[in-house]
């Protein structure tokens, strides 16, 4: 009677496929580090660009990207909500793609371009998405907010790049910015204060302005 079942499978395959691609890429960069530091101590020198600025750090290999930002660079706008990749409060952009900074080690980001909430805008010169969150009151306690904003900025780029989501109906048509797409794609960012309704309005406004 209906096709959702079949479509489910193809979506899932697609997700698996894209996840596999990511895994291969990360493994490659990881093994590069393992060979270059195999006999060395438990720390690694890493250099990357954070919010446009070149940064060099000598880090314990166990240091997550999140703790590198917060504890070593004192960029505390990126939040630690769970340290398990379950809440999204630590979302940052790595080479333009959103990533849970708690689920990835700093040493895996050698040479990359990291953007945190501090890199999007400042008080007095807010990024449009930051301004839209203020306008629509898309936050309360503010602790998930940097993650929501970073995630939403990258999420709109994913739609623009025609990457499908679980709720995309027609995989052959261009992906659309709908409330359902926004909600699905933002569901990795938990807001316990429950600002979702306002957040979706903020993102929709920015998406409309962009279109």
């Amino acid at each position: 009677m209906q096709s959702p079942g079949a479509l489910e499978i193809s979506r899932r395959d697609l997700l698996v496929a894209s996840a596999a691609t990511v895994t291969v890429a990360s493994t490659a960069s990881l093994s590069h580090f393992q060979t270059s530091t195999a006999a060395a101590s438990q720390s690694t020198k890493i250099s990357f660009t954070v919010n446009g600025e070149r940064r060099e750090l000598q880090l314990d290999n166990r240091t997550t990207l999140l703790d590198a930002l917060r504890e070593h660079l004192h960029l505390t706008g990126t939040k630690k909500g769970c340290d398990h990749g379950q809440c999204g409060a630590c979302t940052v952009l790595a080479d333009g793609r959103r990533v849970n900074a708690c689920l990835t080690l700093a040493v895996m980001h050698e040479g990359e371009d990291i953007t945190t909430i501090e890199g999007l805008g400042q008080p007095g010169s807010l990024h449009p998405m930051q301004a839209a969150f203020v306008e629509h009151d898309g936050f309360q306690c503010g602790y998930c907010t940097p993650g929501q904003i970073c995630s939403s900025v990258a999420m709109l780029e994913e739609i623009k790049a025609n990457i499908p989501s679980h709720v995309t109906g027609d995989l052959l048509a261009p992906a659309e910015v709908t409330p359902a797409e926004i909600r699905e794609r933002m569901s990795g960012n938990i807001c316990r204060c429950g600002a979702y309704s306002n957040i979706v309005e903020a993102i929709t406004e920015i998406a409309g302005r962009k279109a």
Binding site: R70, H74, L75, T76, G77, T78, K79, K80, T116, I117, E118, L120, G121, Q122, P123, G124, L126, Q130, A131, F133, V134, E135, D137, F139, G142, Y143, T145, P146, I149
Partner: peptide, 20 residues
């Protein structure tokens, strides 16, 4: 609008673990 909005949306609001 919230007067602390620009701080919270830019990551400048300083929470407990973040004092330096």
């Amino acid at each position: 609008h919230r007067i602390d909005g620009p701080l919270k949306t830019t990551g400048r609001a300083v929470y407990a673990y973040e004092w330096h």
